[in-house]
Simulated scan of single mutants.
Amino acid sequence: MSVYSIKDLEHLSGIKAHTIRIWEQRYDLFSPQRTATNIRFYNEQDLKLILNIASLKNHGHKISKIVAMPQNLLEEEVKRVGFGSKSYEDQISALTLAMIDLDEEVFNFTLDQCTEKLGFEQAMMNIIYPFMRKIGILWLTNSINPAQEHFISHLVRQKLIAATDLAEVNKNGPLCLLFLPEGELHELGLLFANYLLRAKGARTIFFGQSVPLDALEEVYHKLNPNYVLTAMTTAPEPSEVQTFVKRLGNKFKNSTVYITGSKVIGQSLKLSDNVRVMNQFEDLAELTRGVKEYSS
Rank of each mutant, 00 (worst) to 15 (best):
residue 184 E to W: 05
residue 227 Y to C: 00
residue 232 M to I: 01
residue 137 I to D: 05
residue 156 V to K: 07
residue 154 H to L: 13
residue 149 E to V: 09
residue 198 R to W: 07
residue 238 P to S: 06
residue 154 H to G: 07
residue 145 N to D: 14
residue 233 T to Q: 07
residue 232 M to E: 01
residue 222 K to Q: 13
residue 230 T to I: 02
residue 192 F to N: 01
residue 146 P to M: 04
residue 233 T to V: 11
residue 199 A to M: 08
residue 216 L to I: 08
residue 167 A to N: 03
residue 194 N to A: 11
residue 154 H to C: 06
residue 165 D to I: 04
residue 250 N to E: 14
residue 205 I to E: 10
residue 178 L to E: 10
residue 225 P to T: 01
residue 189 G to F: 02
residue 160 L to F: 08
residue 153 S to M: 05
residue 220 Y to S: 06
residue 165 D to L: 12
residue 197 L to V: 05
residue 147 A to E: 02
residue 185 L to D: 01
residue 141 T to P: 01
residue 185 L to F: 15
residue 173 G to Y: 14
residue 175 L to W: 09
residue 246 K to G: 00
residue 230 T to L: 02
residue 203 R to Q: 15
residue 140 L to A: 15
residue 215 A to E: 13
residue 180 L to H: 06
residue 212 P to T: 09
residue 182 E to D: 06
residue 225 P to E: 03
residue 184 E to K: 06
residue 153 S to P: 02
residue 139 W to Q: 02
residue 224 N to F: 04
residue 184 E to L: 06
residue 136 G to C: 08
residue 144 I to P: 02
residue 190 L to Y: 02
residue 161 I to Q: 09
residue 190 L to D: 03
residue 163 A to P: 01
residue 172 N to H: 12
residue 166 L to A: 15
residue 176 C to F: 11
residue 201 G to Q: 09
residue 144 I to D: 00
residue 165 D to H: 13
residue 178 L to C: 14
residue 198 R to M: 14
residue 147 A to V: 12
residue 200 K to Q: 14
residue 249 G to N: 07
residue 227 Y to T: 04
residue 238 P to W: 12
residue 185 L to G: 01
residue 185 L to Q: 15
residue 241 V to H: 06
residue 229 L to A: 15
residue 190 L to S: 09
residue 162 A to V: 10
residue 163 A to G: 03
residue 244 F to P: 00
residue 168 E to C: 07
residue 242 Q to H: 05
residue 136 G to S: 04
residue 236 P to N: 03
residue 230 T to R: 04
residue 156 V to D: 05
residue 216 L to R: 09
residue 204 T to G: 03
residue 235 A to S: 12
residue 214 D to A: 13
residue 247 R to I: 00
residue 205 I to T: 07
residue 240 E to C: 00
residue 146 P to I: 10
residue 235 A to F: 11
residue 250 N to W: 00
residue 152 I to S: 10
residue 245 V to N: 03
residue 211 V to G: 00
residue 220 Y to V: 03
residue 169 V to L: 14
residue 200 K to C: 14
residue 216 L to G: 06
residue 174 P to C: 08
